[in-house]
């Protein structure tokens, strides 16, 4: 009866977010706009963070959350530059 404890459930939620996010980033509604596709990309990123959490990788989780916000800055800057330079 104790098979569905917290760790197993967290792993399942992480894989669920990963699969849903990848499918949504490819076939989702109105993804020809690059910023909306970037916002869909954030969902599998949070799924990866949950999988790190389920395997007790504390240092990897902290580093991943910190790097993720820097990565967001780089992607947003690249999208805006692409929109400016494109004729």
């Amino acid at each position: 009866m104790n098979t569905m404890n917290l760790v197993v459930l967290t792993t399942y939620i992480g894989y669920f977010l990963l699969i849903i996010g990848v499918i949504g980033a490819i076939f989702g509604p109105m993804t020809n706009d690059p910023l909306k596709r970037l916002l869909n990309i954030e969902v599998p990123s949070m799924g990866v963070a949950l999988i790190f959490l389920a395997y007790n990788e504390t240092l990897a989780l902290m580093t991943y959350i910190a790097v993720n916000s820097v990565l967001m800055l780089v992607f947003v800057r690249a999208i805006i530059k692409n929109e400016e330079l494109e004729a």
Partner: peptide, 11 residues
Amino acid sequence: SCILGGIGVIL
């Protein structure tokens, strides 16, 4: 909250 948020970001 995780499930509802993940579906809501995409829809």
